[in-house]
């Protein structure tokens, strides 16, 4: 039970790391500059030219959408409000990452689950394979302990590569 709890907690923590976002609010008063527009445009994807962020898309449609962001900023809209507006108009695909709801949770849950599963398999394999340490050690000691021995064993390794 405790182990399950730890596993679930780990998945949730990893999932939160995956979806946590470091975006900054930018709704300064006055005429919005290109940089202020691009802060938001960078987080939105062109609804027409797929996989191209709005801030670098060269099409006429994208230039108009950037102007729309500028207008909204001038009207005092916040970053969140503008992003929501685009989502309402064009769907979730305009966001750089899927919003964490419904089926979209899978995108955040599956990778950490798979990695934890891999770690678990590896851990079990280590446990299964681990045997008592042999009496003799053929491997390289730290170089300062015995340089001659190191040199001899290096030669041996090179011969058996």
């Amino acid at each position: 039970m405790k182990r399950n709890f730890v596993a679930i907690l780990s998945v949730l923590v990893l999932a939160l790391v995956f979806i946590s976002s470091g975006t900054a609010q930018s709704d300064l008063p006055g005429t919005p500059t290109d940089d202020e527009v691009n802060v938001i445009a960078k987080q939105l994807y062109c609804p027409v030219c797929e996989n191209i962020p709005l801030d670098v898309c060269g099409t006429q449609a994208c230039a108009q959408w950037r102007e729309l962001i500028r207008e909204k900023l001038a009207q005092g809209w916040t970053e969140v409000q503008i992003k929501n507006y685009f989502v309402e108009q064009y769907g979730d695909r305009v966001l750089a990452t899927p919003p964490a709801r419904g089926l979209n949770w899978l995108i955040y849950i599956i990778p950490p689950l798979a990695i934890l599963a891999g770690l678990y398999i590896l851990f079990r394999a280590f446990q299964a394979w681990k045997r008592p340490v042999p009496q003799f050690d053929q491997d390289l000691p730290a170089p300062e302990t015995n340089t001659d021995q190191y040199a001899a064993q290096l030669e041996e390794q090179l011969r058996n590569r």
Partner: peptide, 12 residues
């Protein structure tokens, strides 16, 4: 599944 396409972009 939902009929809606999403973008999985660089931040992910």
């Amino acid at each position: 599944a939902t009929g809606q396409k999403v973008t999985v972009g660089p931040p992910f």
